[in-house]
Every structure is written in C-alpha cells, then in structure tokens.
C-alpha cells in the first residue's frame, strides 16, 4: 500500500526538466528571445570584442573571411566583422526606441480615441492622412530637411508607425468598452480617468506588446532601407543598411560585405517576429486565429 502511494506522488521536476518543458511549450518565444539576447549582448560589448569599425587598412582591401578578418574586409580595408557588430547597435537602438515611442504615443492616442467619440473623429482622420503617405518618402523628406543623425531617423520612422498602434489600441478599447465588466464597473460608480486607466488600459497590454514587436521589426527594416538609400544614419556610424550600400559596387568580388550584414538583418528581424508570434500565442490565443 505504502509503495503504491509513494509511486503515485510525482517527483518535483528538476530545473532542467522545467526549462525543457518551457521551451517545448513556447519554442518561438525561446528561440526568438535567445537570438535577440545574443545580439543585444554582442552589440553592447562591441567596443571590447571587435576592433575599430572605422579604421582603414589600405593594404588589406577586399580580403575574404579568414582567421584574421572573420567576416573579411571592404574596399577601404575596414573590418566587416567590427562594422557588422557595431551596426547591430544602430538596428537594435532604432528597433527598440521606435517600438517604445510608437507604443507610448499610439497607446495614449488610441485610448483617447476609443473612449472619447469627439477626439476619435478628429484624431483618426489625422491618422488616416499619415497612413496615406509612403513611410520611406516621409522619412526621406524629413531627413533632407534637417541634419542627418540618429534622432531624426527615429522621428521619421516613429511617425508612420504611430497610426498602426493607434488603430489597434482604439479597436481593442472599443471592444473592451462593451464588455460586461466595464458596464459592471460603471454601475458601481466608476467613470472617467479611473475607468480608462484602471479598468481598460491593462486589458490593452497583451495585443499592444505583440504589436510592439512587429513595429520593432518593421522599424529595423525601414532604418536599413533608409541607410541603404543614404538617407539614414550618417556614414560615419556603421549600420547594416549603409554597409550593404557601400559594398554594393564590389558585390561580385567581395560578396561577404553584403551577405553577412544582410544575414544579420534577416536573422534579427526573424528573431523579433518569432518572439512576437510566440508572445501573441501566449498572451492572447484569440488573436492568433485572427491575424
């Protein structure tokens, strides 16, 4: 009898087993998150693990990847490894800041639009206007008007991303407003700011976080596109976009200076999207069928 009871009691799973279960349940979150973490670590430690990305070594131009030059060198003899890892900083800073700014601005406007019908009518028309402008063109226009720099790139990418967040938040707020628990809160005397902030805002978080990951991925791509066109960060800051742009002329003899930063860009965007998909499935299973 005692033996049976003992056998029936499951042993506490070990830490390793628990991690294994977590990975099996959410493989996309895990792999996306892991790739991102590695990239963030590389980018943060770039000055210590690589050489100077701007240092010219004229005697070592267009060298293929080797033990000395892991990712080869470009037409000026600059280390592509150092440039690529430093370029990760620009991409990550742009991706994360754009996601943060666009979310905060979009969330605020979206909440107001979903809650106050009069604000809605005005703000949504402005958003429709912004959405009708091609984002790359808007960015190029803004950048040509000012001195190039990281700040203006951020502004130029945030503006076209905001309407997407506003629309999402607004639609979520509208659907939450008609939920019985909101009616119930109103029937208890809650109204105005408190209803909006305490009862509605937390319910918008799950879809917003998922949307933020997509905004992050899209911002990285737009930044690379702008830098490729020469309208992004200034050339003295290496970014995947301008590395690819500069390597373009020598693609046939030195393909590594394009393929490697390109692969990093693809991998990063993929990781962010994987993370977003995983979070979506985890935070809001209903969304996964809709999108």
């Amino acid at each position: 009898m005692a033996a049976v009871t003992d056998a029936a009691v499951p042993r506490a799973p070990s830490l390793l087993a628990k991690t294994g279960t977590a990975i099996r349940r959410n493989p996309t979150i895990f792999f996306g998150g892991a790739i991102l973490l590695i990239l963030v670590a590389l980018a943060a430690l770039a000055p210590w693990i690589t050489g100077d990305p701007l240092k010219l070594t004229p005697s070592q131009r267009l060298r293929p990847p080797s033990e000395r030059w892991w990712f080869g060198t470009d037409q000026y003899g600059r280390d592509v490894f150092a440039r690529t890892i430093h370029g990760a900083r620009v991409s990550l800073v742009v991706g994360l800041s754009v996601a943060a700014f666009a979310s905060v601005i979009g969330l605020t406007l979206g909440l107001l639009c979903g809650y106050f019908r009069k604000v809605d009518a005005i703000v949504m028309r402005v958003m429709d206007g912004i959405m009708s402008i091609p984002s790359i063109l808007l960015a190029i226009a803004l950048i040509t008007l000012t001195r190039p720099g990281l700040g203006i790139v951020l502004v130029a990418i945030v503006i076209p991303e905001v309407p997407r967040v506003v629309r999402l938040t607004r639609s979520v707020v509208l659907s939450i407003r008609s939920q019985p628990y909101i009616e119930s809160a109103i029937s208890g005397g809650t109204r105005g700011a408190k209803l909006l902030i305490r009862h509605i805002l937390p319910n918008t978080m799950a879809p917003l976080i998922v949307q933020a990951t997509y905004v992050c991925a899209s911002a990285m791509l737009v930044e690379a596109g702008l830098s490729f066109l020469g309208a992004g960060v200034p050339p003295e800051i290496p970014s995947w976009g301008n590395i690819i742009s500069q390597g373009r002329a020598f693609f046939q003899i030195a393909p590594w200076s394009i393929l490697i930063p390109g692969a990093f860009l693809t991998l990063t965007v993929l990781a962010v999207n994987l993370l977003g998909d995983g979070l979506r499935d985890r935070l809001d299973p209903r969304l996964s069928r809709r999108m």
């Binding site: 628990y181 009862h199 978080m205």
Partner: peptide, 8 residues
C-alpha cells in the same frame, strides 16, 4: 464569467 475585470 464576464462581469469581473480579468486583469484586476
């Protein structure tokens, strides 16, 4: 089932 706020 739906008259209580799920996040509070």
């Amino acid at each position: 089932m739906t008259s209580l706020n799920p996040v509070l």
